[in-house]
């Protein structure tokens, strides 16, 4: 019983809108990831759920309780902070036990539960150290252990991996995924790293400037971005976006001309396609332009062109080579194209 419901939750500081009408049902046992660029309101949303930030407008429900007015301690959720928030004066053991102690869990259970949590995150060898004597990854795991020790109704994690190096990030990510599988606790996870979002999430919420842009499974988000923001934010590299004219199923923008688009829409549109979906062809193709630059990625070569004001990238085989300014052709078939309204940025068609 731990679905979380946000009903038009809004946060304003004076005139500044931190989060605008956030409306979402999060299912029990779901792993939800909040994704968005820096300053888009992810942390604020999470802090409102935790009760650390007042809500300007709207309602938050945990299970069947409306928690707007509840203190953080009465909400029965646990949170992993970006900077971990470990208690420097306590040992690892005491840190993990702290939630049990303040919540008056019977003393005889403490040891067992702390040990169990410590074991899950592989911390057993460090129990009597102080946080100052731990590495970043170990601190991170103490924070995790402290969150899971009391078996709350939900976990909130705010960029828990952002202070770790790349390698550690991969292994801890796997650990978090595994923990969620074992504990089956509803989890809200904040990140601005899309790989994390894609690998961990049941569903992803993409936010920008305090407004939810799209909610969906990682595949949805990747394959059917709801608007140009999501299209331009998700994927590496992000989707190519070209402004142009659409008339009778034919898109035209200088060096790009795509025919046979399955739409009845006419007028100004933005055409999107992913670098890996397009291919370099010796002749013809929908795009024909001089090469602007070529980068070797190891597993592929990335060719880019200037189209209008934008850079358009296309992935080619790893042994493909082209000179700068050499005229090259690329195939951008209608099936791989996404169309967006130029004005609103919203997706056109399915």
């Amino acid at each position: 019983m731990a679905e979380i419901r946000l009903k038009n939750v809004t946060k304003r500081w004076g005139d500044f809108v931190g989060v605008q009408k956030f409306d979402l049902d999060i299912a029990d046992k779901e792993f939800l990831v909040l994704l968005g660029p820096s300053g888009c309101g992810k942390t604020t949303t999470m802090r409102m759920i935790a009760g650390l930030e007042d809500i300007t407008d709207g309602e938050i429900w945990l299970g069947d309780r409306m928690v707007n007015k509840l203190e953080p301690k009465d909400r029965d959720i646990s949170m992993v902070f970006q900077s971990y928030g470990l208690y420097p004066n306590m040992t690892v053991y005491e840190n993990i036990r702290f939630p049990l102690k303040v919540r008056k869990v019977p003393k005889d259970q403490h040891d067992e539960r702390v040990m169990k949590a410590a074991e899950m995150v592989e911390l057993k060898d460090f129990l009597d150290r102080r946080p100052a004597a731990l590495s970043g990854g170990q601190r991170q795991r103490v924070a995790l252990a402290r969150a899971i020790v009391r078996e709350p109704t939900a976990f909130l994690m705010d960029e828990p991996l952002s202070n770790l190096d790349a390698k550690l990030r991969v292994s801890t990510r796997a650990q978090i995924k595994n923990l969620h599988h074992t504990l089956k606790t509803t989890t809200i996870y904040v990140t601005h790293d899309q790989i994390e979002a894609m690998t961990l999430a049941d569903r992803v919420v993409v936010m920008n400037k305090g407004v939810v842009q799209q909610v969906g499974t990682p595949t949805d988000i990747y394959d059917k971005p709801a608007n140009t923001f999501v299209a331009g934010f998700i994927g590496s590299p992000a989707m190519n976006l070209v402004d142009g004219e659409l008339r009778d199923g034919v898109f035209e923008a200088g060096k790009v001309r795509v025919t046979g688009l399955p739409t009845t829409h006419n007028g100004k549109v933005t055409l999107g396609f992913r670098a890996e979906d397009a291919t370099i062809v010796p002749e013809g193709g929908e795009l024909s332009a001089p090469v602007y630059s070529m980068e070797l990625l190891g597993d592929a070569s990335m060719i880019s062109f200037r189209v209008g004001g934008e850079l358009v990238s296309i992935k080619a085989a790893k042994d493909y080579r082209a000179e700068i300014d050499e005229q090259v052709h690329a195939a951008i078939p209608a099936e791989i194209c996404h169309l967006f309204d130029s004005k609103t940025g919203a997706r056109l068609g399915a």
Binding site: K73, I77, M79, L86, V102
Partner: peptide, 9 residues
Amino acid sequence: ESAMVDGCT
């Protein structure tokens, strides 16, 4: 804040 989430007033 972590202390408050952990159950402190």
